[in-house]
Computed example of a mutant assay.
Amino acid sequence: MKGVWTEFKAFALGGNMLDLALGFIIGTAFAALVDSLASDVIMQLVAAIAGQPDFSGLIWNLNGSQIRYGAFLTVLVNFLLLGAVLFGLVKLLKRAGMGNFRAQGSHECPYCKEFVPIDALKCKWCTADIEPGQAEDEDVKLIADRQRTAD
């Protein structure tokens, strides 16, 4: 039994589990912050313009059933705001040089057909210049210089 407890402690207190737990807690707090931004600020601006605090009062009656499309629109606006805030935060952190926001995934080299990272400018197998599937901001100048040289 002691071996199982020791193994469980190593699992629960290991780096990946703590990282996941901290990420979940911060994510939950951040979601509450963005939800407050959406409901307490943005939707109040909608209320000032449209005369309603949110869209939940929009209902469509069909055969005695209420289809609450307004509640869906409110949740959709909150979701889009969360996405916009996260996008802005990642762009800000990337510009500040904080975090590791490298593109994930791979694509096939058009010359040797080996798989290379999605943001690769040169194939590591055949060393051919390739178009990246997703260019980083700092790579745009290199791509433009390469195209100018080819012309």
Score class of each variant (00 low, 15 high):
residue 2 K to V: 10
residue 6 T to E: 15
residue 7 E to F: 11
residue 10 A to G: 04
residue 10 A to S: 12
residue 13 L to I: 12
residue 13 L to P: 02
residue 14 G to Q: 03
residue 16 N to I: 12
residue 24 F to Q: 11
residue 25 I to G: 05
residue 26 I to R: 09
residue 27 G to H: 01
residue 28 T to M: 03
residue 28 T to R: 05
residue 30 F to R: 00
residue 31 A to Y: 05
residue 32 A to D: 11
residue 33 L to N: 03
residue 34 V to P: 02
residue 39 S to R: 15
residue 44 Q to D: 07
residue 44 Q to E: 10
residue 45 L to C: 12
residue 46 V to I: 14
residue 47 A to F: 07
residue 48 A to D: 06
residue 48 A to V: 03
residue 49 I to Y: 12
residue 51 G to F: 06
residue 51 G to N: 05
residue 54 D to W: 00
residue 54 D to F: 01
residue 55 F to H: 01
residue 56 S to Y: 01
residue 58 L to I: 08
residue 65 S to R: 11
residue 66 Q to L: 07
residue 67 I to D: 00
residue 68 R to D: 10
residue 73 L to N: 01
residue 74 T to G: 07
residue 76 L to Q: 00
residue 77 V to W: 05
residue 78 N to P: 02
residue 80 L to I: 04
residue 80 L to V: 12
residue 81 L to P: 02
residue 82 L to A: 07
residue 83 G to I: 08
residue 84 A to M: 15
residue 85 V to A: 14
residue 88 G to T: 07
residue 89 L to A: 12
residue 92 L to C: 07
residue 93 L to K: 09
residue 93 L to S: 09
residue 93 L to R: 08
residue 94 K to F: 05
residue 94 K to A: 06
residue 97 G to E: 02
residue 98 M to Y: 02
residue 100 N to H: 06
residue 100 N to K: 07
residue 100 N to P: 04
residue 102 R to F: 11
residue 103 A to F: 10
residue 104 Q to C: 04
residue 105 G to T: 03
residue 106 S to I: 06
residue 107 H to F: 06
residue 109 C to V: 04
residue 109 C to W: 04
residue 112 C to T: 08
residue 113 K to I: 05
residue 114 E to W: 00
residue 115 F to H: 07
residue 115 F to D: 15
residue 115 F to M: 12
residue 117 P to H: 02
residue 118 I to Y: 08
residue 119 D to T: 09
residue 121 L to W: 00
residue 122 K to F: 08
residue 124 K to Y: 13
residue 124 K to V: 02
residue 125 W to P: 00
residue 127 T to Q: 15
residue 127 T to S: 14
residue 128 A to M: 05
residue 129 D to I: 04
residue 130 I to D: 04
residue 131 E to P: 01
residue 132 P to D: 04
residue 133 G to K: 00
residue 133 G to R: 04
residue 134 Q to A: 15
residue 134 Q to E: 15
residue 136 E to I: 08
residue 139 D to Y: 01
residue 139 D to C: 02
residue 139 D to S: 03
residue 140 V to P: 10
residue 143 I to M: 04
residue 143 I to H: 01
residue 144 A to Y: 04
residue 144 A to T: 08
residue 145 D to A: 12
residue 145 D to I: 05
residue 146 R to Y: 01
residue 147 Q to R: 15
